[in-house]
């Protein structure tokens, strides 16, 4: 029972970490007013580039960095089309996502079905000795701890720093932000780069830290869950963290319950995050005052920064 509970915690963290990482990035992007629907493709490209890197170098950290960089590379393309060529964000996101999936399949062909050694864990002294909670929460690889810390940092940045203010202002109304002298173009460009890095990092995390293998289709729709998470969180960091861990918890709990010999309607369970997201966004949007508070009003709208 103890090990089961410990796994409920550790499995939740492991499943939620890549989602949280990518969602942190996507939240920044969306807060700046850009809807990036290419997360799935960016995660896939990050995963395969990360995997190729670890095969070549054996280093997990290089792999994670390379995965993030691959995400950035794809983001440059996305940003160029959306910001400079003033392309429709939805269509561009889908197109870049398809490109990312295609390239990942192409690069990954020679790594199909291969495995790598897992990343070294970093048990936290003292805390990891506590029964159940120790192995559950405090015996992981560094990124697992880092993800929630990054979220806290993001929360603080959006709330209390000038950069956060600029991002929010640009997402709220690029026209006003421009009028008071903020560079809409630069802000959005940087936000998209961060978003791409985080998505690539999340993909590389799955390929080299949690699953430790590559196969075409490895991301299996997790990029869309990330998009759902950000909306479910109604663009708030605290809800994002809760949402990511809740989602991870639901995934793991379903498997544990099945293992106990209780059958579960797994399709319904898989649908719950999406249904919850629809409900969340409906409730939030109903009250236009509340909506104003967190949602980037210009989300998805093309802004001509040359005019």
């Amino acid at each position: 029972m103890g090990t089961t509970l410990a796994f409920l915690l550790s499995g939740t963290l492991l499943a939620a970490t890549p989602l949280l990482l990518a969602a942190i990035g996507e939240l920044i992007v969306e807060r700046s007013g850009i809807l990036n629907l290419s997360i799935e493709g960016m995660m896939a490209l990050g995963a395969v580039v990360g995997f190729a890197t670890i095969m070549a170098t054996g280093s997990h950290w290089l792999a994670l960095g390379a995965g993030g960089t691959a995400g950035v590379a794809l983001s440059v393309l996305f940003a160029g089309v959306v910001l400079l060529a003033l392309g429709n964000q939805v269509a561009t996101g889908i197109a870049v996502g398809i490109l990312g999936l295609g390239l990942s399949g192409l690069i990954g062909k020679s790594y199909e079905g291969m495995t790598v050694a897992p990343m070294k864990r970093m048990p936290i002294p003292v805390l990891s000795e506590i029964p159940i909670i120790g192995p559950g929460l405090f015996n992981h690889s560094l990124l697992v701890y880092l993800a929630p810390l990054l979220a806290v940092g993001l929360w603080w940045m959006l709330r209390s720093t000038r950069i956060g203010l600029v991002i929010r202002a640009v997402g709220e109304s690029p026209e006003s932000a421009h009028a008071i002298g903020y560079s809409v173009l630069m802000t959005r460009f940087l936000a998209i780069m961060v978003g791409g890095f985080m998505a690539g990092l999340a993909g590389a995390f799955i390929a080299t830290v949690s699953a430790t293998l590559w196969s075409d289709g490895l991301i299996a729709g997790r990029g869309w869950i990330v998009v759902a998470l950000v909306v479910f969180a109604t663009w708030r960091v605290d809800r994002l963290v809760i949402g990511a861990y809740l989602f991870g918890l639901a995934t793991i709990a379903e498997l544990l319950v099945q293992g106990m010999g209780i059958s579960v309607p797994s399709q319904l369970l898989t649908s719950i995050p999406y249904i919850a997201t629809i409900i969340a966004i409906s409730i939030l949007s109903m009250d236009s005052r509340k909506m104003r508070l967190n949602s980037p009003a210009s989300l998805g709208r093309t802004y001509n920064s040359t005019a």
Partner: peptide, 24 residues
């Protein structure tokens, strides 16, 4: 490999959207 085809679809739309700049 089919991935080539998938990639080309991405290229097709990305380049089209970018080129629309000169039309719109």
């Amino acid at each position: 490999p089919y991935a080539v085809n998938t990639s080309l679809q991405g290229v097709l739309l990305v380049s089209y959207i970018a080129a629309r700049l000169f039309i719109d």
